[in-house]
């Protein structure tokens, strides 16, 4: 996965709360392999019958401004694949579901949780607005307003470097082995009996 530091693109609004992962990608598409590309599945059933759907009118958009509790429901990482493969780099909302937010950062997708999301949705409406996101300075500017956002050091490093946890964790292989051995001695019952 390629890392990124600054993103400039067009922001578009998805004026809904509780956008669950079943909507982000309906279950029937989930047997596809990633190589086939997941972009065409994004919000499939919502946008299908709606010619005015913002992402249909503005397929070039790369920043999505949505409502609270974005990404709730199933842990399916395919919801993030659908966003990323459709060209979305950043989602801004009042809040995100925990599992979704974790999946996002593992795939180069930035989630910005801010109470300003409502004002941004109102300002952009059915149109688009230029947006710029700087990971290093944690600044978001969109629709003429500028603000800082919270981002943990870990998430920042992963997004900028395109890092994968597996590489980082394998550096601690010795510690893990010691923990395992200790657990097997002190808590042998934690291994399944056969």
């Amino acid at each position: 996965m390629a890392g990124w530091s600054i993103h400039e693109g067009q922001a578009v609004v998805l004026d809904r709360r509780d956008v669950d992962t079943d909507q982000l990608i309906p279950a029937r598409f989930m047997s596809a392999s990633r190589a086939e590309g997941y972009g065409r599945f994004l919000l499939h059933d919502l946008r299908e019958g709606d010619a005015e759907f913002p992402l249909r009118r503005h397929p070039e958009a790369s920043v999505l401004i949505a409502g609270p509790n974005f990404g709730c429901g199933s842990s399916r990482e395919a919801a993030v694949y659908a966003l990323v493969d459709a060209g979305i780099r950043v989602v801004v909302a009042e809040s995100f579901a925990d599992i979704f937010a974790g999946n996002a950062v593992n795939n180069g997708l930035l989630t910005i949780a801010t109470p300003e999301a409502a004002a941004l949705r109102a300002a952009i409406g059915m149109g688009t607005a230029p947006a710029c996101i700087d990971l290093a300075s944690r600044r978001l500017s969109v629709a003429g307003s500028e603000q800082s956002f919270e981002l943990t050091e870990t998430a920042q490093a992963k997004l900028i470097n395109g890092w994968d946890d597996i590489d980082l964790t394998r550096a601690h292989a010795g510690e893990i082995r010691n923990f395992r051995d200790r657990r097997k001695t002190d808590h042998a019952w934690t291994w399944p009996s056969r």
């Binding site: 999946n103 795939n107 597996i166």
Partner: peptide, 15 residues
């Protein structure tokens, strides 16, 4: 519950 990247991580490291 965890996503696919984390599933791969647990498979590879048990952590």
């Amino acid at each position: 519950g965890i996503g696919a990247t984390q599933v791969a991580h647990v498979l590879a490291t048990q952590t």
